[in-house]
Amino acid sequence: MSLFRTELRRLAKRRFARWMTAGGLLVLVLVAAGMFLSNEKIGPEQRAAAERAAAADHQEAVRASEQDRVACERAKAEGTEFWTTDCASINPPPREAFEARWYLPSTFDFRETFGEMLIPLAAILGMVGFVVGASFVGAEWNTGGMMNLLLWRPKRLTVLLTKLGALLTGLLALALPATAAWFGSMWLIANLRGTTAGMTSGTWQSFLLTGLRGIVLALVAATVGFALASLGRHTAMALGGAIAVMVVGQVGLGILLDVAGVRFAEAWLLPTYALAWMTKTITLQDWRSCNATYTGQCEPATLDITWQHSSVLFTVGVVLFLGAALWTMRRRDIT
């Protein structure tokens, strides 16, 4: 227990962990501030303004259409070219084509939007977890701290797993209040700059589960970062690996699959699974295919990626990387 407490203290003392945490929280604050500033509450005044704007645009369109028709007839009489010869077909648009709701300012509908707003929270927590997790053990290897610790605690696996436990506990201590604060701040913004109407216990439950999945995603990212840095005995192993995977493995692979005409190319890309984990399901479409419907329309083939698929992938990833890190910790010499 003393080792666990010490590792928690070490994590809290690490300047890099503090800066990364502060940076992640700052980004969240900026996103929240952006949400506050870019939305406003819809009231009678805003609706009236939207009506006026829609009417004005309709009038403008009617004028433009009349001018077009006149120009068309003139061109017809002079025998010059115009984009159409059927001047009678140039009709003013109907008033219904200009709906007032399109002219309403952006508003934050908590029920409609908050689920999506949990994705940036999970992404930032995941990034902080990955980088801090990698640095926490990578710097220890790199600066000889791990060797010093092993001279005190020669049980290698216990030391590594205790470090991981401390990291995940620290991340939870950040992620839980951060998620609670995100719920609170978005609820407040929705009250001040939007609406919280239509919320039911089912909606709350769904949001809470999404938030929970976001925290799990952050824990997975932290574990993978930790395991990679431990494998390479350097922080750069994890960070370099992540960059390599994103640039070569994702962007490069995406282009290659696209060029090769592979069906559902996104199914090979990691972000798809992260997104599926958060949104529960992602439906990929193959636009090259055509499934004729009884109405004669052409529908693309689809492939559903669900959060269960993602959970299998994450479990395999964690088992693979952490297992390799533990194996090398046990077998390799400490030099």
Partner: peptide
């Protein structure tokens, strides 16, 4: 063992305090 290696951004007191905690 060999040259002394410590996490460079911790103070000497922090370094020893963490080792004392671990032990």
């Amino acid at each position: 063992v060999e040259s002394p290696q410590f996490f460079p951004h911790f103070t000497a007191r922090d370094t020893l305090s963490l080792l004392a905690g671990a032990g």
